[in-house]
Amino acid sequence: RDVMPTDQMDKHPLQNRWALWFFKNDKSKIWQANLRLVTKFDTVEDFWALHNHIQLASKLTSGCDYSIFKDGIEPMWEDNKNKRGGRWLITLPKQQRRTDLDHFWLETLMCLIGEAFDEYSDDVCGAVINIRAKGDKIALWTKETENKEAVIHIGRVYKERLGLSSKVVIGYQAHADTATKSSSIAKNKFVV
């Protein structure tokens, strides 16, 4: 304990270290150049310090994303930890940006850092929020579409944590399907 720096005392460690990424759409640059690693954190206190410091998602301009991923996983389909996986997708009509978007995103973040999915939390890779004029999206990414039990458990808990009505159906799509889709709607592999 003698060697622990003062600012690390009394902080609550997280199970995982997480990285926050920011994407800003600048069409003059290639996609990867618009994606920036903001910072990493691994305690509850550092999470809140970060969350309180950055712009609320609902205040970002259209075309921007926040992503939060486990350290070592890049927020893109191509990453080895993502490529066999998929995402639980929440789409929000424009009018819900004001009422629900920031709340849903914070709940998503708390599910991730708090390891809300018990042993299936190991299947979680991260989450992404897309701010778009045509409708915002929040997605929770998992590592393996074939891990049906994990995917379904995560979807059920996630839906409950967001406080969504049992009448609302949310879908899980494989990244491989999203990446190759010809229409604007990828098919759902699972729903809860």
């Binding site: 460690p13 199970q15 809140w48 708390m110």
Partner: peptide, 18 residues
């Protein structure tokens, strides 16, 4: 090993503590 789990209530309390 043991997983470090924090429920919503605990996380929100940490947010509000000085």
């Amino acid at each position: 090993g043991t997983r470090i789990i924090y429920d919503r209530k605990f996380l929100m309390e940490c947010r509000n503590s000085p």
